[in-house]
Design a protein around this nucleic acid. Structure first.
Length: 215
DNA sequence: AGAGGAGGTCCCACAAAACT
DNA sequence: AGTTTTGTGGGACCTCCTCT
């Protein structure tokens, strides 16, 4: 992220000849402006911005999207050509379901560029459609929870019972990237409590031997 | 027996939406 | 504009099991 902003871009290389040699040996990209340029080019083409995967300690994985993920995002960019690069990046994160800072979220919300509630923001495609969309998005969000709950119910229905690890491995891959591992566990805990409260399922046993069954 | 861990429950704080 | 409702994450606490 830092390399995208002005401060972190190299203005010139201190050892020009060394840099040239490294370029010729394909050890570094042409002029060191690559990352910033890629972001700008993708934005100009109304495409989703590149992502970095830093999970591997020895390598950096760059994902460049060749296709539009969220059409609403592209429309928005076309209509708002005066957005700053940081705003575009933040919007892009929203459309990918990733986290953004509170301050940025507030700012984007004020400009009617995003809707929804932390941490479930959505890119709004236009102010005129906002009211329609809002209802739709809220419905989507509620649907998400019922979707997850249905997954749990289906699982228990099929296998008659489910342990917590069963349910975790069932839901964790499908939960939003916004949540980290710990938050996902908490969320699943809440979902289970919810299901128990509406008396769909019940918990038997305790600790390692606890399992969920249909009520 | 006691420490530590796993899993569940309850409740609180916070923020945003909905309501009036 | 102020108030109420709702959704969410997180912490404290409880029970019971396992390990030493």
């Amino acid at each position: 992220m830092d390399y995208v902003t002005e401060e972190r871009r190299p203005k010139k290389y201190r050892n020009y000849k060394l840099a040239q040699a490294m370029v010729q040996l394909n050890m570094i990209d042409t002029m060191g402006y690559g990352i910033h340029e890629m972001y700008e080019k993708q934005a100009k083409r109304y495409l989703p911005l590149p992502d970095y995967d830093l999970t591997m300690p020895q390598a950096v994985k760059l994902i460049i999207y060749g296709d539009v993920v969220d059409p609403a995002y592209s429309k928005l960019l076309i209509k708002n050509t005066d957005l700053s690069i940081m705003e575009i990046i933040a919007l892009d994160r929203v459309q990918k379901g990733q986290n953004i800072s509170k301050g940025m979220a507030r700012e984007l919300q004020r400009k009617n560029l995003i809707e929804g509630r932390r941490p479930n923001y959505y890119v709004s495609s236009s102010v005129a459609e906002a009211t329609n969309k809002k209802a739709k998005y809220i419905r989507n969000r509620i649907q998400d929870d019922t979707f997850y709950m249905q997954l749990i119910l289906d699982y228990i229905d099929k296998y008659e019972c489910a342990t917590r690890p069963d349910i975790d491995s069932l839901l964790i891959p499908t939960l939003s990237e916004v949540l980290d591992e710990k938050q996902k566990i908490t969320k699943i805990g809440h979902l289970l409590t919810k299901l128990r409260k509406i008396e769909k399922i019940e918990n038997v046993g305790v600790g390692r031997y606890s399992k969920w069954v249909m009520k």
